[in-house]
Design a protein around this nucleic acid. Sequence first.
RNA 1: GCCGCCGUAGCUCAGGGGUAGAGCGCAUCCUUGGUAAGGCUGAGGUCCGGAGUUCAAAUCUCCGCGGCGGCACCA
Length: 872
Amino acid sequence: MSRYNPNEAEPKWQAAWASQQSFKAGTRPDQPKYYVLEMFPYPSGRIHVGHSRNYTMGDVVARYKRAQGFDVLHPMGWDAFGLPAENAARDRKINPREWTYDNIAVMRAQLQRLGLALDWEREIATCDPEYYKHQQAIFLKFFEKGLVYRKKAKVNWDPVDHTVLANEQVIDGKGWRSGAPVVQRELDQWFFKITEYADDLTDGLENLERWPDKVRLMQKNWIGRSRGAHIRFEFANGEDLLGHGYEAEFGSNIEVFTTRPDTIFGASFLALAPDHPLTKQLAKEDPAIDEFIALCQRLGTSEEAIEKAPKRGIDLGLRVKHPFDPNWELPVYAANFVLSTYGTGAIFGSPAGDQRDLDFARKYDLPVKPVVLPAGQDPAQYRLGEEAYTGPGKIFNSASWLNGLDTLTAIEEVIKRLEKSGQGQGATTFRLRDWLVSRQRYWGCPIPIVRCDSCGPVPVPTEQLPVKLPDDVSFDRPGNPLDHHPTWKETTCPKCGAAAQRETDTLDTFVCSSWYFLRFTDAQNTDQPFDNATASRWMPVDQYVGGVEHAILHLLYARFFTRGLRDCGLIDLPSGEPFAGLFTQGMVTHETFRAEDGRWLAPEEVEERDGRLVEATSGIRVEKGPLEKMSKSKKNVVDLERFIADYGADAARWFVLSDSPPERDVEYTESGVEGVWRFIQRLWATIDGLPEGAPKPFSPVSALSDANAIELRKAAHKAVQDITDHIENFRFNAAVARVHDFANALRKAGNDAGSQDLLAARVEASTIMVQLIAPFMPHLAEECWSRLGGEGLIYDQAWPKADPSLLVEDSVIMPIQLNGKRRSEMNVAKDASKDELERLALDDPSVKRALEGLTLRKVIVVPGRIVNIVAN
RNA sequence: GCCGCCGUAGCUCAGGGGUAGAGCGCAUCCUUGGUAAGGCUGAGGUCCGGAGUUCAAAUCUCCGCGGCGGCACCA
């Protein structure tokens, strides 16, 4: 008997898998396919234990599905473009490419050491011209199809770094890197027309049954579809107030969007966004309006400032006519709470039915007329306080044709009448905007467009792709190195041959991750991004695993991309959905330490002196910080290689899946890891403790007479059933707990020879145990399999099946309750009748005792569960 | 502010109308040739609070409280 040494065993089995090409995908073309994918990593440097959780979960699924006979595709690659490489280049004078590929080499080795069942032949890096060349081809397909366009847009511009920033990179109005206040700039930018699919992206969510509800909801809210109406309000006095030009450009009315056309008779004003074209037009003639616009712009951009800003507005002097009563005139305001980017940038205010409108109306003394009567209210008595009523009800105080209708019917009725009179129509708007993909950065995929003075933007001919990034760039001055490059952008127009310039913007890295899962299906294809038939066989991804932080952007972009690719004829994917199953895993957290002066410290920098925590070098007092997700900045990462050297890859895999449900965070603790180590040793000892000359695995187990042997067989087959069920449902922590149970049962079945029956049962149970742990701790499983004398690799063994005859219990322990309180229990046959159970229960000595002096009222018998006696 | 998730042993969490559970930790004892240990036994619970439904509620319903997350003037 020996101890298990992972540092010997693990590399040995990894070499065995590699030499047998165990993880190659596509080797079972006749079997159903199964595509497992973890969100591919950004090659930032090193992997820590926190990262490994994501890959381990995917790996469990991959190995489990493989054991079930599927042709499994489980690839890995690198989301390799992005700003950190440029920062490293600037700070350390290294080329971004070298920095990136060095990191990839380190991280690849780490993932391999973790024993992941990955098909490395399909490895891709998005910064490889062999990858981005296809991305450029896709870009041009989208361009042809009208899914890509250029427009002037207001963007967040960092005046120090000379680049645009995404919204999430602006923190409190300042650039996240430079700290400089971000300015809004109008720039010519490239966009993907994601809004074209806004409806489909919303509707598609309904069918994603294997996605977390939470993520579907977040996407739904993000897209933010609202149905309502556009209503046009004709000017009552416009001509003399407006300079000229507006009418030609915008017509003789103001168009608003509303979700509540039913409240049209409660309207008391119109409000325009401060930057609505009409507001701007009027500001040219009226300094007061101009001043108001400036005031709104000054009012910070942080969300908190916006939220707390009181409602303000200015009367523009315009009057418009109510659509259903030409004699009813409404004032038009510009108001700070109206957004130019949503709907039409204009609203009609119906104060009784909208809190913002009510606040505004109260401030400027505008009429407040309730038009929706909540159920159970008396119309004569109904008054509104400081709160608007936004719920359903019956319309009143309105036109006779509308009064009495419920809100939903009223909405339809008003829309019908608007459409008839041509003053409006039903409309849907979205919160979602088009996807801005231009980035003024170097380390990204070049946009394959040439800007020609006479031809405009011209696509680079496909045969000239890729448009490659130059290597000789400098990061000495701020701004886009591509733009600064002395020669790179100079070219000729593919259309007219005149001198022209390349587009120097590169694509948002989210573009790279919007189709990488398709490239994995046909990663070696040099002619096209992927072969349609090949990709269509593997798609959709059956199980996608990643962090919730990508719940919106990445997943939405990818869903858009597959729709676009489908509509360009590149893939047969009718639903357009790339990911049939999605799992969002929680993080690994670890304790943190913080010095009094606010610095984060690593655990090894802290020591205890006189019962207090201090920094070892300085003696400065240290406080235990909160549990935080492992991150370099908090100095609480546990390096994966270090961990593996101490405990092995299996221990890391087992640990990150224990304890917490996969979707929740798990806390890294040293004691937990030691528990895992002991478990591994105990399990090995249990298997290794089988006597020499025991039967081989899968030996038929004949009819057994030994009661202990039968019990053990039952425990084993029950474990198969439960653990299979837990894996199917992504309850890995429950599977782990169940393995613990089963391991205890197996261990306690005895290490001495016992009866031949018991020995046979132990071998069977050990075999099952090894099969069950194989997806989780594959190296230990192989070592045990080999020790048991199994043929070949456990990796190639089929998943065990539970014998149904061993799952049924013939007797069951049933509690007996008296007035809902447990008084006794009895061991009865599972199929005992109700009458018999009642008789047995009333016959129970302690029940008899308890019943003395009481009158029996009722006996409730739930066969197999409980008997409850009611008496008083 | 709106929406969602969570609250069970010291910690991390299973369970989900009918006996309150696991791992780790803790305590007692045994072993010290399975030894960076191993084993036996055990203590530990207001299942967040309140009300309701029920023969029976940790579980279902409603109302609170606390924690976390998403969105945030979206008309």
